[in-house]
């Protein structure tokens, strides 16, 4: 093929593709995942469309990026989970399988195929009480690279935002937090991710980045955002009866966490 005949142009094409995708994704609303005493909370803010989805009894998926690309990935994950769940058993449906053999390769193939549009999406998945642990998360990047996290996770428009959001969450005791406290922590992390994603120039130097993250006026970012966005909070909750642990969280349940960010 022509592109691979010329290594320089191939590298340039890949770099262009990365720039294009990152540019499309960067201002999206981050998604934050954090463990709490009764399970896992995924939280984001959005204008109205649903961003956090049920995949299987103990699995959730959320994404940042182009909504139809996220939709295609969501459907692929659901198909895979239900095929395995029926043909083997519910216990055989694991996040690892879905990421390693489903979403990872699919997104990698989309990224590599230069004549087609890539997945303009970064995806976050959560698994409660699976074979790998109690509160497990995976993130899959637009190029198919995936990472495993325990206890907390965050996906924003740029990788630097992910790092700073996770830093904000990392001191928490994910097995002891109340739902409302977990929501409060997730909101603060969201604000940091949102701020960094919207910067014209994101600092590449680690120290500088930490300084920027530390100086974000969290209350101001959230008060502004909550004027035209709504909080979407979904849990996988151990104490739910039955196999299915998915539940939408009512605004009232996290009202104490939200109160400090509401404009009068």
């Amino acid at each position: 093929m022509m592109l691979s005949d010329e290594p320089y142009r191939w590298a340039e094409a890949v770099a262009n593709r990365r720039d294009y995708i990152e540019d499309q994704i960067r201002t999206g609303s981050p998604v934050v995942g954090v463990g709490y005493e009764d399970g896992i909370l995924l939280l984001t803010l959005s204008q109205s469309q649903q961003k956090v989805f049920e995949v299987y009894d103990r699995l959730l998926l959320a994404g940042i990026g182009h909504s139809t690309d996220i939709e295609n990935l969501r459907q692929a994950a659901i198909d895979m989970a239900h095929s395995i769940g029926f043909n083997y058993s519910e216990d055989d449906v694991t996040l690892r399988q879905i990421v390693y053999f489903g979403l990872g390769p699919a997104m990698k193939a989309g990224f590599d195929d230069v004549v087609r549009s890539p997945f303009l999406a970064r995806v976050l998945l959560a698994e409660l009480d699976g074979q790998e642990g109690a509160q497990i998360f995976y993130t899959v990047d637009y190029d198919g690279a995936f990472y495993r996290h325990e206890g907390c996770v965050a996906v924003g428009g740029v990788v630097e935002a992910d790092v700073m959001m996770v830093r904000e969450l990392s001191g928490l005791d994910a097995e002891a937090l109340s739902l409302s406290d977990a929501a409060g922590a997730a909101l603060r992390a969201w604000a940091i991710g949102r701020w960094i994603g919207k910067m014209d120039e994101v600092p590449t130097d680690a120290e500088e980045l930490e300084q920027v993250a530390g100086e974000v006026d969290v209350v101001d970012v959230l008060v502004t955002a909550l004027k035209d966005m709504e909080v979407e909070a979904v849990v996988l909750e151990r104490s739910q009866l039955g196999k299915n642990k998915y539940r939408n969280v009512d605004a009232e349940e996290i009202a104490p966490a939200l109160a400090q960010f509401k404009a009068d």
Partner: peptide, 16 residues
């Protein structure tokens, strides 16, 4: 029963 159990859940998750 197994097919139906999965079919109801699948429909809800897939079609929201």
């Amino acid at each position: 029963a197994r097919i139906l159990e999965h079919a109801f859940q699948y429909y809800r998750r897939r079609l929201l």
